[in-house]
Design a protein around this nucleic acid. Structure first.
Lengths: 149, 149
DNA sequence: TCTTGACCTTCCCATGATGGGAAGCTCCAC
DNA sequence: GTGGAGCTTCCCATCATGGGAAGGTCAAGA
């Protein structure tokens, strides 16, 4: 199989395939005399594994770990579960963050007439000084917190 | 006010301040004879507006629109509301996507013993062939869909 | 056998918003 | 006048992904 066929069979683009190889996520495949990459079914299975792991939003770094655990018959499932639960925790945090943004902005949008008049609660909120922004805990922004400590 | 003072007063880092200027989000401020940027209170107000808009997760592009609407006394609130509701829609889509990932992975993690034994539902799921992945509608990945149409 | 078009190779660039850091200049307080 | 804090520009890195150019390869059909 050349790279295009492996891409079609795995659902990973040829571009990403080369990228995964360059970062060491997958080992360099064999080459034909003319330099074309050659893949086999085992490679395609690994790529599919990676694609599915990506669909869970896992980072390349974690996927690298998962692939090595997957290929280790003596792995303790504890390791795999640890990676998964850590990712779940991060996803929950991200979801909570987005939900807060979404709810706060939605409330403002609901309060906005949305007609030809210039008065707008959304803009009024955005131009507020140091006042708390309701649902968003916006007192000290990340910038304020991290800028030169 | 020099850039450091404007950064402290607005909560936007000096680094981002220069970046916003380079992308045209804010106009180039005045300069001293020696080349230092000079800001006034109006600039700081704009930067605060931007910082608060960023806290809602709005993109630079949309913030650019919002700033121009904000500064237009004759703006129709319709425009502002449109931008906000569009962003809310995108946030909801993102939240749904992350929630699906999170729930699916969490279910797998819950089913995993997490001990020294190698058997693991998480890895079993990831190595599955074309089978549907439960909560994730993983039949055709983005790669499969977009790769060479 | 030659041509043609699809495919492969490497290399560079762009994304979006942000930070890190280097080299060099400026300003202020002592 | 000196030291240190702060400013300037410029380049690099993130993270996973795609776009595209320049050039080589392969296979099918004339």
């Amino acid at each position: 199989m050349n790279i295009g066929q492996a891409a079609a069979a795995s659902g990973v683009s040829a571009k990403m395939l080369r990228y995964y190889e360059s970062t060491g996520l997958v080992p360099p495949p064999g080459r034909t005399d003319s330099g074309y990459r050659v893949y086999d079914q085992a490679d395609v299975n690994t790529l599919r594994f990676i694609r599915r792991a990506r669909a869970f939003g896992l980072s390349m770094e974690r996927i690298k770990l998962l692939v090595s655990l997957w290929q280790d018959r003596a792995r303790p499932s504890r390791e795999v579960k640890r990676i998964a639960t850590e990712h779940v925790r991060e996803l929950r945090a991200k979801i909570a963050e987005l939900t807060a943004m979404c709810d706060a902005l939605d409330a403002l949008a609901e309060a906005c007439h949305g007609d030809q008049r210039p008065d707008c609660p959304i803009l009024r909120d955005l131009e507020k000084g140091a006042g708390a922004s309701g649902a968003l805990g916006l007192r000290r922004s990340p910038a304020e917190r991290s800028d030169r400590q």
